[in-house]
Computed example of a mutant assay.
Amino acid sequence: MDTKVVLVTGASSGIGESAARHLKDAGFTVYAAARRLDRMAGLREAGVHTIALDVTDDASAKAAVAQILAEQGRIDVLVNNAGYGSYGALEDVPLSEAQAQLDVNVIGLARMAQLVLPQLRAQRSGTIINISSMGGNFTTPLGAWYHASKYAVEAISDALRMELAPLGIEVVVVQPGSIRTEWGAIAAANVRETSGNGPYRVQAEAVANTLGGSSSPGARMTSSPDVVARAITKAATARRPRARYRIGFGAKPLVFAHRILPARVFDRLIQRGMGIGG
Results as ranks from 00 to 15, higher is better:
230 R>N: 05
169 I>D: 06
193 E>D: 07
144 A>Q: 01
249 F>T: 11
50 T>E: 03
4 K>L: 13
183 W>H: 15
187 A>P: 14
262 P>G: 11
218 G>S: 11
264 R>C: 00
78 L>H: 09
150 K>E: 03
149 S>Y: 03
274 M>S: 04
274 M>T: 07
201 R>V: 01
212 G>N: 05
162 M>A: 06
22 H>P: 03
230 R>V: 05
223 S>A: 15
220 R>A: 15
192 R>C: 06
171 V>D: 14
250 G>I: 03
90 L>H: 12
275 G>I: 06
211 L>H: 12
141 P>R: 00
54 D>A: 01
48 V>G: 10
130 N>H: 00
96 S>Y: 06
16 G>L: 05
236 A>I: 02
170 E>R: 15
254 L>D: 07
57 D>A: 05
217 P>T: 05
31 Y>D: 04
237 T>Y: 07
27 G>H: 02
59 A>R: 12
148 A>I: 00
205 E>C: 08
39 R>Y: 01
270 I>C: 10
125 S>C: 07
223 S>H: 13
88 G>E: 02
52 A>H: 04
30 V>K: 04
256 F>R: 14
149 S>Q: 00
190 N>E: 08
49 H>W: 04
16 G>K: 06
156 I>C: 04
21 R>A: 13
70 A>H: 14
171 V>R: 12
1 M>Y: 09
205 E>S: 13
140 T>A: 05
108 G>T: 02
50 T>Q: 02
22 H>N: 06
137 N>P: 01
133 S>E: 04
132 S>F: 05
222 T>D: 12
270 I>M: 11
28 F>T: 11
17 E>M: 09
266 F>A: 14
12 S>G: 15
161 R>K: 09
208 A>I: 01
177 G>I: 11
180 R>G: 03
9 T>A: 00
141 P>V: 00
136 G>K: 08
247 I>M: 08
176 P>V: 10
164 L>D: 14
124 R>M: 12
76 D>W: 10
157 S>G: 14
93 V>K: 09
189 A>W: 00
33 A>T: 05
6 V>R: 07
133 S>K: 07
44 R>H: 13
233 T>K: 08
114 Q>H: 08
196 G>I: 11
